[in-house]
Each structure stands twice: as structure tokens, then as C-alpha cells.
Design a protein around this nucleic acid. Structure first.
Length: 406
RNA sequence: GCGCAGGUGACAGAGCGGUCAAUUGUAUCAGACUGUAAAUCUGACGCCUAUCGGCUACGGAGGUUCGAAUCCUCCCCUGCGCA
């Protein structure tokens, strides 16, 4: 049984429809959205909710679950069981936390910027890269990266004991967690990092990739390698070439880039990745980003947007996003989205009702919003797949962007 | 009627002589959120002004002082206790 099969290819673009089949029995048709359930739970949603949300894939997180479970992760029941989900489950390796708990805090940046982040100066970048190369840890960071792995001293956890993640440790934990797809332990760099730091971090990530392959014992899980290289063409191409040649079951594109550079990063990387294997774009994104990604040959995407923004009152619709918490929606008796078949809209949740729930700080508010958003993104992917099958992907893309006023 | 305790910006509630247009929280408004440090965060929030700055404000009226939300006097109001 093949893990990944491509069933339709778009004639004009690199878009394709495929099927992921895991040894666990889970199935997902791609392009697919991967819902984020970091701590083995999609925030605010019940397992019943997830079943009704058209969710095919969920991604949990190695770092956060290991923080929670410690060594008892060895006796973990397994993510499918914990999630009550029989679709395709992924785990992120903890590589993103190297950034999100480290440089992201220090630089005060997120991984995707609408503007190009100002880079570190050439000298600062070179010093940082040299320090990294000879194995000197960054002193200020709550994450200290060494050539062997990364120390996490995360004060938001009460026990406060630093933990050390290496490629081997990450794989070991991910095997205990039991996802269908696991990711190589990598280093996600910051948008502020310059060429030299990115180069060194990339080389390190490549070495870690080999160690992950070597450390993997289970055959039932698919292992993805991760392309890094920041927003540098030379580095991305090199990374994709090197990682693409390694015996991974699939490939992910990670790292930080500006909004504009994202398309370039994909264009530089994809040609070096084996055509017949699945390609995942880490941490992206918005509707327009997905369209750009699919067009360039990406099969799966994971992003916190539908869940996080839902909790914050952001409602995604075909006509764009709005904030239901605005007082003007009180008393409004239109459904969240006209004609929507999601469990929230189907049960008659109106803008007014949801606005009121948010104002009351009722916990159901985030749940309804998340339900709608997750369903919306999953339905969107469904339509997107159909368009590829029909050979109308380009028209579909154009229409979606038009409707979103983008 | 007597005895306490109080009256501060939409509300709650700090401040108790100058650094006070007044801490903080809530509400309100605006914005952010892209491998979840996030049911979170940022900013605005008396009036006028793009800004500098100006004006009016801490129950009311006086007073003391170079200077009062802060001290004094009287008045009005509220809560609790006693009649």
C-alpha cells in the first residue's frame, strides 16, 4: 500500500490531488488542511465536533506534549486514541519551538511578516553564525541551541526544569506519541537572521535530518524531512536538494519568510523535492497563501489561524473575515455565514447570538467560532480539490480571491 | 436626631499638600494573530488640537497655602449602628 498516491494533476500549474493512506488506516485527500491540536486537543472542540468539521488531519506537538507528560510519554495511549480521531495525525518535532520560544521572543517577531523584517547587521549575523558553528550557546535566549540539540528553559511551565531535545529524543518521543506522520527535528530561524546564520542553521538541520532517519525505529510512521534556508534562494535550493535526496517519506518546507518571499521559497524548493512524495508547508496559512501553495505543488498545510482567530472572534467566510465581537452584531439574526452547513450555522447560531456569547465570555463562544472556521477551511479545501479534478483550479483561484476582495 | 464610615473620570476602585488629567481593573473603540508562551496581545479612552499646547475636572460653596483630589469650615447626599 502506497503512503501517498497522486490521482489528478492540474495541467496549467503544479497543483495536484492526492491521497494519503496511513498504516493506521487513516485517509486524507490532498490538498488538505491540517488542524492544529498542539496538546493532543483541538482547543475548544470536542471529539464529536471534530467529526462534524470535515477534518481529515490534525497536528500535535512534541515539545508541548513532552513538557506535559515527561517520561510517562512512553506509556502514552497514542494520539488517535487521545484525540478520538481516526484520520491522519501528524506531530511537529519541536523544531518550531526552537524559534517560537527562542528568537521569536527575543526578536519580537512572528514567522510570517507582511513587511520584510529588518535583518540583523552583517557583523552581528556573522558573529551569531560563528558562535553557533563552534557550538557556543546563546546566553540570553530561553532556548539554547547547540550543535547536538536544543535546551528549553521555558518558564511558562511550573516545573521549570529545562529539557533537552535532540533529533534522537524528538524521534523517540514522536514514536511514543504515535502519529502517522512525524517530522524531523529542525531549527526554524527568525526573519531577522541573515544569510550566515541561516546557512549554519541549515547545515545543522541537515545533520539533524540524517540523525532523525537513523534514530527512527518504527515502520508504521512516515517521516518527513524539512527544508530550511530562510528567504535565501541559494540556501533554499541547497536545502531542498540535500533534504530531497534523503530517504524521507515526505517533505515539509519550514522556516520564516516575508509574505512576498513565501512564493519564492516554495518555487525554489519544490523542484528539488521528489515529485511522487507528499509536500507539506509548515504553519501556513491564510486562504490566499494556500492557493499560492497549492498552485506551486504543496499538498498539505497546517495553521493555527482557524482555531486561534476563532477563539479571538474572527469568523472566516467566502467573503472575507469579520470580527463577531463587535457590538454592532448584537441582535443581528443572520447566521455566521449565509448558506453555511457547519455545525454552528446549522444549529442556528447567529452573529448576534455569538457576539453575545463572546461578550459574556461564555466558553461556547470560542467553540462555535472554531467549529465554523475549521469547517470553513476544510470545505474550502474540498472545493479546491474539486476544481483541480475538474481542471478549473486557476478559475477557482481567481474567483476566490475576487470574492475575498484580495 | 446622635455615633461612626464614605462621596474620585461610564462603572469598580487607588491616590490623601506639589512629579495628578489623576495607579489599576472592567466596559467601550481600533488593531494584530500564519509548524499555538495566545479563549491572547497592542494601542486609544475628560474636552479642543495633526502636534506643541490649552481648557474644564476628584459631591457643592467658601477658606488656608506660592500650590489642594489631598488640610479647615459649612452645606448636600449615601451606607452601617443607636434611638
Amino acid at each position: 500500500m502506497d503512503f501517498f498516491t497522486i490521482t489528478t494533476r492540474d495541467k496549467k500549474t503544479k497543483a495536484r490531488v492526492g491521497m494519503l493512506k496511513t498504516s493506521h488506516g487513516g485517509v486524507a485527500e490532498t490538498p488538505s488542511y491540517v488542524v492544529v491540536g498542539t496538546r493532543a486537543k483541538v482547543k475548544t472542540l470536542t471529539t464529536e465536533d471534530i467529526k462534524k468539521s470535515k477534518t481529515q488531519m490534525i497536528i500535535s506537538n512534541t515539545y508541548h506534549l513532552f513538557r506535559e507528560l515527561g517520561d510517562s510519554v512512553k506509556e502514552f495511549e497514542g494520539l488517535h486514541s487521545r484525540l478520538g480521531f481516526d484520520g491522519v495525525v501528524m506531530t511537529d518535532s519541536g523544531g518550531f519551538q526552537v524559534f517560537s520560544l527562542g528568537f521569536s521572543r527575543e526578536h519580537n517577531v512572528s514567522k510570517v511578516g507582511f513587511f520584510s523584517h529588518k535583518k540583523n547587521s552583517f557583523v552581528a549575523d556573522l558573529i551569531l553564525a560563528l558562535r553557533a558553528k563552534i557550538g557556543l550557546r546563546n546566553k540570553r535566549n530561553s532556548v539554547r541551541i547547540t550543535n547536538n540539540g536544543a535546551w528549553f528553559k521555558d518558564e511558562s511551565y511550573s516545573d521549570k526544569k529545562p529539557i533537552f531535545l535532540t533529533p534522537e529524543k524528538s524521534i523517540e518521543i514522536q514514536e511514543s506519541l504515535g502519529a502517522d506522520i512525524i517530522l524531523a527535528f529542525d531549527e526554524c530561524t527568525s526573519p531577522k537572521h541573515g544569510f550566515w546564520y541561516n546557512k549554519w542553521a541549515m547545515i545543522r538541520t541537515h545533520r539533524w535530518a540524517l540523525r532523525c532517519i537513523k534514530a527512527k525505529k518504527k515502520n508504521s510512521q512516515a517521516l518527513y524531512g524539512i527544508v530550511q534556508g530562510g528567504d535565501y534562494e541559494e540556501l533554499r535550493k541547497e536545502s531542498a536538494r540535500v533534504i530531497g535526496k534523503m530517504p524521507f517519506d515526505g517533505f515539509a518546507i519550514g522556516g520564516s519568510f516575508g509574505k512576498e518571499e513565501m512564493r519564492n521559497v516554495i518555487d525554489w524548493s519544490v523542484p528539488f523535492l521528489p515529485e511522487e512524495k507528499p509536500r507539506h508547508l509548515l504553519g501556513v496559512g491564510r486562504i490566499e497563501d494556500i492557493l499560492d501553495g497549492v498552485e506551486r505543488g504543496i499538498d498539505t498545510f497546517d495553521c493555527v489561524i482557524p482555531t486561534r482567530e476563532g477563539r479571538h472572534g474572527g469568523i472566516w467566510t467566502k467573503k472575507g473575515r469579520y470580527d463577531v465581537t463587535k457590538t454592532k452584531f448584537l441582535g443581528n439574526n443572520e447566521l455566521l455565514e449565509n448558506g453555511c452547513m457547519c455545525p454552528a450555522c446549522s444549529s442556528g447560531i447567529t452573529k448576534g447570538v455569538l457576539c453575545n456569547l463572546f461578550k459574556e465570555k461564555n466558553e461556547e463562544a470560542g467553540r462555535y467560532a472554531t467549529l465554523h472556521n475549521v469547517f470553513f477551511f476544510n470545505s474550502f479545501m474540498e472545493h479546491l480539490r474539486t476544481s483541480i479534478k475538474n481542471g478549473t483550479f486557476s478559475e477557482f483561484k481567481k474567483q476566490v480571491l475576487l470574492d475575498l476582495h484580495l
